[in-house]
């Protein structure tokens, strides 16, 4: 067991995210898995050293599950690249910066809890083409998450990406295990609405970077 466990900070979620990443993960007791469960929505993340389960539902968004198997800490984020006008370069760069920040928030929280960067491994999910007619944002998200992990030298241990159906993902940070449930298209109105409203929210707050000069 890793040392210094008692001094670890409490599990942390979305509260550290900037204003355009909103909401708060909500917790409940999952009877089926007999443990506490944390549900995250688009734009949120959650990191923990406890033996619990992190749950999310993905349409074209992606979720990265990161863990340090030695320190037994893990976490999940849930995001989408705001690629609304793909032909315009500044938008592409904004998208990539947004994605990189979403990954970094989670990574920093894990490091704070005792994870080591060079021990991190990942599993990635989502990026479905579930919005008919809309440009294929799912594949952009997949491309981003794969490229990012590769560039950061974080091994991708497992993935379930792409396809046409939304997914419900259960991540158990202690064992590193992930269960994926494919959902029926017919029931995913809420998922789509949530993702679209999240996307709009991100687009509205795109210039929100907070600057302070000390004088």
């Amino acid at each position: 067991m890793s040392p210094g466990r008692s001094s670890r900070p409490e599990p942390a979620h979305g509260s550290r995210m900037p204003s355009f990443m909103r909401g708060k993960a909500s917790s409940y007791f999952d009877r089926h898995f007999q443990r506490s469960a944390m549900k995250i929505l688009p734009g949120e993340f959650y990191a923990t050293h406890r033996d619990e389960v992190i749950v999310t539902v993905l349409g074209s968004c992606v979720a990265a599950c990161l863990m340090d198997p030695v320190a037994m800490v893990g976490g999940m984020n849930h995001f989408m690249l705001p690629l609304s006008r793909r032909d315009q370069d500044p938008d592409v760069f904004f998208a990539a910066r947004y994605g990189a920040a979403a990954m970094e928030y989670l990574i920093n929280e894990l490091l704070r809890m005792g994870a080591q960067r060079d021990r991190l491994v990942a599993k990635a999910f989502g990026g479905g083409k579930v919005m008919e007619g809309l440009s294929d944002v799912g594949s952009q998200n997949i491309l981003f998450v794969r490229t990012y992990l590769q560039q950061e030298g974080i091994p991708l241990w497992a993935e379930d990406l792409g396809g046409a159906r939304p997914r419900k993902v259960y991540f158990f940070p202690h064992s590193g295990q992930v269960l994926v449930k494919r959902l029926e298209q017919a029931h995913n109105r809420t998922i789509l609405e949530r993702e679209v409203s999240y996307l709009e929210h991100v687009a509205l707050n795109r210039d929100g970077s907070d600057v302070e000069l000390f004088t």
Partner: peptide
């Protein structure tokens, strides 16, 4: 940084930093 907490900013200021920018940054602003 992704850190936006006041206490962390204060530490940066005391250490002698000139300014603080929270990620994600926009190139124009940077």
């Amino acid at each position: 940084t992704t850190e936006s907490g006041l206490d962390m900013k204060q530490k940066g200021k005391e250490a002698g930093a000139t300014g603080w920018i929270v990620k994600p940054f926009s190139p124009e602003k940077l």
